[in-house]
Every structure is written in structure tokens, then in C-alpha cells.
């Protein structure tokens, strides 16, 4: 009892000096704020075509199908899908017609934009409709509730939301078509993407998104479509 009393008395007299600790925190917070990432950056691997002999693996197996060399060309009127060595599924007998127009012509997508306080109009979302489903960012499925929820949020923040019809590439259709091609050429992983000079970078990324993965309908697993992208500067 006596000992604890003494201890208590000593405690009573002491006052914790918090100032050094506060200094430390005050320095740490700006330092951490500086290095905090508020946007998550990811990266898409791309390679440019190699100049040189073709890979030996393809030469050694003569019984295999020749490489697909699947090429997607982005033009101002639509997407062209072609293969140098194979006839793609779904395009037999259509060669004549396809020579005239793109494989997947452009479609109208809905563009949702807002006006920033500075007066600048900024597009917030673009929505595609394909086969009765709606997609955001080219191939990401969205529900109509999800869209209206977002629109309500923007309305609350910016006042009004303008909805416009814009002509854009039909990425959902590309995605579906690539799934069919993948079924016929299961081992293929490479796709060559090329574009017209004035096609914007965003379209290239959208096409890369559509060619990367797909959700298997039976198992629900995410499977590779054609994840190896080779960017070619060739103009069709």
C-alpha cells in the first residue's frame, strides 16, 4: 500500500510534455501527404513490333496452325478486324462486303457531361448499349440504377448534366467478336493494334481494354483474350 501511494504521488506531479510529439506529427503529415497517391495508376504493357527473324517456336511445329496475327485497325469510321493467315470465324463469305466498310462500324453512345465552375465542359461518362445491356468505359457493364445514381450525384454537385448522343467505336461488339475468335484460336494471345493518324489515345486504350480479358459465362472466371498487345504504326 505504502509503495503504490508513493508511486501515485510521483505520477501526480509529472506532466507529460506533448510538444515534441506534436512537432513530429506536424512534420510527418505534410511528408506523407506529399507522397500519398490520390489516383491509382496502373499500366498496360505494350511492345512495338520486333524487326528480325520470327520466333523459333513457331517454326518448329509445322502441324500447328499458322500464327493468327490478329490485327485490329482503328479508323475514323470504325474498327477493322483482320488476320493475315487465317479466315476469322463469322467472316467467311463476307469478304466482298467487308472490303467496302469496317468490320464493326461506329455506333451512337450516350455522353454525360457537366459544366465545371470555370465554364469548362467535362465529359464524366460515356455509355454504350449493346444487345440490350449497357456498358461504361467500353466494356464495363453498368446497370441503369447505377447510371441514374451517378447522374443524381453530379446534378447535386454541378447543377445540371447534359446528355448527348456521340458517335463512337462499338467496343462491346468488338469484345463479343473477339470472344468468338478466341474460341477458334485458343492458344493465341497476341493482337496487333494499329490506328489512323488522328485516332486519339483514349480509343487505343479502350480497344486494349476490350482485347484483354473476358468473363467466362459458365464458370464466371476471368480469362485472357489477347493480352499481348503489339502497337503498329502501319496505316491501313
Amino acid at each position: 500500500m505504502g509503495r503504490t501511494d508513493k508511486y501515485k504521488k510521483r505520477e501526480e506531479e509529472k506532466e507529460v510534455d506533448l510538444i515534441p510529439f506534436m512537432n513530429l506529427i506536424a512534420i510527418l503529415i505534410p511528408a506523407l501527404m506529399y507522397s500519398t497517391e490520390f489516383v491509382k495508376i496502373a499500366s498496360l504493357a505494350v511492345s512495338s513490333p520486333r524487326i528480325g527473324p520470327s520466333q523459333p517456336a513457331q517454326v518448329d511445329k509445322p502441324d500447328e496452325k499458322p500464327p493468327l496475327n490478329l490485327t485490329i485497325a482503328i479508323s475514323s469510321i470504325g474498327l477493322y478486324i483482320a488476320s493475315a493467315n487465317n479466315v476469322l470465324p463469322g467472316s467467311e463469305g463476307q469478304q466482298q462486303e467487308q472490303a467496302a466498310g469496317p468490320t464493326i462500324p461506329k455506333v451512337t453512345a450516350k455522353s454525360y457531361s457537366i459544366q465545371e465552375p470555370s465554364g469548362k465542359v467535362k465529359e464524366m461518362m460515356r455509355v454504350w448499349e449493346f444487345n440490350g445491356k449497357t456498358y461504361n468505359l467500353g466494356i464495363k457493364p453498368v446497370t441503369s440504377e447505377g447510371i441514374s445514381q451517378r447522374v443524381a450525384g453530379w446534378k447535386a454537385q454541378y447543377g445540371s448534366v447534359q446528355i448527348k448522343d456521340v458517335l463512337d467505336h462499338n467496343y462491346p461488339a468488338l469484345h463479343e467478336k473477339l470472344k468468338v475468335i478466341k474460341k477458334a484460336f485458343e492458344k493465341e494471345r497476341q493482337v496487333i493494334i494499329s490506328a489512323d493518324p488522328n485516332v486519339v489515345f483514349e480509343s487505343v486504350v479502350r480497344v486494349m481494354d476490350a482485347t484483354r480479358n473476358y468473363q467466362d459465362e459458365e464458370s464466371g472466371e476471368t480469362k485472357y483474350l489477347f493480352p499481348q498487345v503489339v502497337l503498329s504504326a502501319g496505316v491501313v
Binding site: 491509382k40 496502373a42 499500366s43 504493357a45 505494350v46 511492345s47 520486333r50 486504350v205 502497337l231
Partner: peptide, 8 residues
């Protein structure tokens, strides 16, 4: 010869 495109 190899590139990574930065995206959000």
C-alpha cells in the same frame, strides 16, 4: 522497345 501505358 517495351512500353507501359499509364492509366487510371
Amino acid at each position: 522497345g517495351k512500353f507501359e501505358f499509364a492509366v487510371i
